Amino acid sequence: MRPLGSAALILAVLALGGLSGPALAASYDFVPAPQTDLNRIYRIDRITGEVSSCQYGLQEGTVGVTLCYSAGEGAGAQPPGEYGLVASRHEREGGVFRVNYRTGQMSICYVFDERVVCTPQMTPSPAASTAAPTAATPSVSSGMGASPQRP
């Protein structure tokens, strides 16, 4: 009896279903909010970019409850892509960045009024990412609730 070649072996495993379906790729990614006193986890659908979130909540007389927030404005399904979540290192930040690894677009997602909301997806322009801030390209402060600084 002749041993199977590597290509034949791979085809045999695939035919038996050993490497198909969920074993090839996970549907969701999970990332904690960077805020150190917040027990919130964000979830993203890696294909659609839809974002939701859950956290632990106290409830008298029980071990507690899981509070979940569904996708609200801007957090719903986006054009198909390769999405992920990235938490900043800002210890007081309750939100996370939604990134599209194929296009480079980013948005910020956070819980607001018991829903997860996200800002519109944006791609930084090459000129803005290499140039120093000017009156035409305002810088952003690094504090909580960052807003453009005015000259």
Rank of each mutant, 00 (worst) to 15 (best):
L19H: 09
A127H: 15
V140F: 11
V63A: 13
V86W: 07
A127P: 13
G76L: 06
M106R: 07
R150P: 00
Y28Q: 13
S142V: 14
G64V: 12
C109L: 05
Y101R: 12
S141K: 10
P124I: 15
A75V: 01
A71Y: 02
Y28T: 14
I108N: 06
E50L: 07
S70H: 07
T137S: 14
E91N: 12
A23V: 15
L9R: 09
R92V: 01
M106E: 05
T123L: 14
A146R: 03
A25K: 07
E91C: 06
S88V: 01
P151S: 09
E93D: 13
V86N: 04
L58T: 10
Y69C: 03
E50S: 10
V51R: 01
L16C: 12
T130N: 13
F112Q: 14
A23N: 02
D45T: 08
G84E: 02
S88T: 08
M144W: 14
V86M: 11
G72W: 00
A7E: 10
A87I: 04
I47K: 08
S70E: 11
A132C: 09
G5R: 13
V116E: 01
L14V: 05
A12R: 06
A71R: 02
M106A: 14
Q121W: 14
E114F: 09
S27E: 09
C109W: 03
S6Y: 06
A131W: 10
Y110Q: 04
P138S: 03
E114G: 00
G18V: 02
Y101I: 00
D45E: 10
A135K: 13
V65H: 00
A15S: 10
Q55C: 05
P151T: 03
H90D: 10
F97S: 06
V111Q: 02
I10R: 06
S107V: 05
G5N: 13
R2H: 12
E50P: 00
S139P: 00
N100H: 07
P79D: 07
G104T: 04
Q149A: 12
E93Y: 11
L16D: 07
R150F: 09
A12C: 11
M1N: 07
E60T: 14
S52E: 12
Q149V: 14
V99M: 05
T134S: 15
F97L: 07
A75C: 03
V63K: 00
I47V: 15
L11C: 12
S6H: 14
S139F: 08
T137A: 13
Y56V: 09
T48N: 07
R115E: 10
A131E: 10
T130K: 08
R92I: 00
R89L: 14
A132M: 06
F30C: 10
Y83F: 03
G21F: 11
P80F: 08
C118R: 03
P34D: 04
P148M: 12
G74W: 02
H90C: 01
R89W: 10
V140Y: 08
A146D: 02
P126F: 09
Q55M: 15
P79Y: 05
Q55D: 09
G21H: 05
T62A: 06
F30S: 09
